[in-house]
């Protein structure tokens, strides 16, 4: 069962059972972005409030598996209160963590290995890489957040 425990680490189960930043923000002023995974039916709604280049608040609703729900909870805890430029960096690091399987274009330079210590609790999601079909669960919230930030730019 070792690989299963690698996937479902205690941090992930904790965020699944007690999701952080759950709820809604008044929109406007907050931006509301929806994300779907049509294959498994997972749905997520991300509420973003950016003021003076800082992501001052983030809330999430939706439903899905433990991986998508814990990933969105971990994401919200990692990005809340951070400048948008820093949030973009966290997203890039997380996406790279998931590239164990998600292939980059062949002419892209291989990026430096992700510093897992700098990622804090997010590093718990690295076990997902061994389960290719679940990567989309883990990245749903992050893609939705990216979409929202792009809209605000």
């Amino acid at each position: 069962m070792s690989s299963l425990e690698d996937l479902y680490r205690e941090v992930i189960l904790d965020h699944y059972r007690s999701p952080r930043n759950r709820g809604e923000l008044a929109s406007p002023p907050a931006l509301r972005v929806e994300g779907f995974n049509p294959l498994c039916g997972d749905e997520i709604v991300v509420y973003l409030e950016v003021r003076d280049g800082v992501l001052v608040d983030i809330k999430l609703t939706g439903h899905g598996c433990s991986i998508s729900q814990s990933s969105s909870s971990l994401m919200s805890a990692a990005v809340k209160g951070k400048p948008v430029s820093e949030v973009r960096g966290i997203i890039a690091n997380f996406k790279q963590l998931m590239t164990g399987v998600e292939a980059t274009l062949s002419d892209e330079k291989p990026a430096a290995p992700v510093d897992l210590r700098a990622m804090g609790e997010l590093a718990a999601l690295q076990g997902v890489v061994k389960f290719p079909v679940r990567i989309k669960c883990a990245t749903l919230a992050w893609n939705t957040l990216t979409q929202g930030l792009d809209e605000l730019d």
Binding site: M1, S3, L4, L7, Y8, C40, G64, C65, S66, I67, Q69, F131, R134, C137
Partner: peptide, 13 residues
């Protein structure tokens, strides 16, 4: 309390 995808993942093991 257990999402079907998590059920199927555990069952796969």
């Amino acid at each position: 309390g257990v999402h079907p995808h998590d059920v199927a993942q555990v069952l796969d093991q």
